[in-house]
Nucleic acid binder design. Structure first.
Lengths: 130, 130
DNA sequence: CTTGACCTTCCCATCATGGGAAGCCCTATC
DNA sequence: GATAGGGCTTCCCATGATGGGAAGGTCAAG
């Protein structure tokens, strides 16, 4: 299976597959005599694993840990769960930050009449003194 | 006022002040005979404006537009409001995406007993077939 | 045998931010 | 007046995950 087919089958772009190989997130695959990368079903499954992890927002470093646990038959599920809950915590923190921005923005936007006149509480707030 | 003092007064790091100048988000300030940047209160206020905008998640490109409107006494507040509501929309979209990740992760984490045994629905899900 | 689709590597760009090196400048203290 | 320490300058590099594109080799169908 060439890289293009592996990309289609896994949902990871060929570009990213090469990148993951370059940072050693995945092992270097076999090559044909002419240098083409060849992927086995197992490797494609690993790529799908990576893509699903990315879809859940895991950074590459954490995916590395997830892959190690995935391969480790003597893993403790507690370790996996901790990665998941840490990820939840990080996402929730970011959501809270963005929600605070949204709240402020909505408050300001509500106070702006949004017509042809220049008076604007949004700019007034951004430009207010210290 | 030197760059360090302007940084303290505005909350924008000296590094970022130089960066904003390099991308022409702010005009090049006056210099002393020896080449030190000198900032007036007006320029510090502009830096504060930028920092507040960044705190609300605006990307630099949008801050450029906000600054232009700020300076334009013939602006229409509708234009400012549109920037704000667009920003709200973008943030809300990202929040929804992250919330979906959180929901999935929590569902998976709840199903994982998180003990010393290797069985783990989280890994099972990430590694499941197509 | 040609054509077009694929593959390879390599370099560059994003976006906002920080780190650090080499070297100059200013002020306070001795 | 010399020296020390801290601040300033520019320049280069790195981040994280991704895409774009060029130059050139390969493969399969017609």
């Amino acid at each position: 299976m060439n890289i293009g087919d592996a990309a289609k089958a896994s949902g990871v772009s060929a570009k990213m597959i090469r990148y993951y190989e370059s940072i050693a997130l995945i092992p270097a695959p076999n090559r044909t005599g002419s240098g083409y990368r060849v992927y086995s079903p197992t490797e494609v499954q690993m790529l799908r694993f990576i893509r699903r992890s990315r879809d859940l927002g895991f950074p590459v470093g954490k995916i590395e840990e997830l892959l190690a646990l995935w391969r480790d038959r003597t893993r403790h599920s507690a370790d996996v769960k901790r990665l998941a809950t840490d990820q939840i915590d990080g996402l929730e923190r970011r959501v809270r930050e963005m929600q605070a921005m949204i709240d402020t923005l909505r408050h300001l936007a509500d106070a702006c009449c949004g017509d042809h006149r220049p008076d604007c509480p949004i700019l007034a707030d951004l430009g207010r003194g210290p």
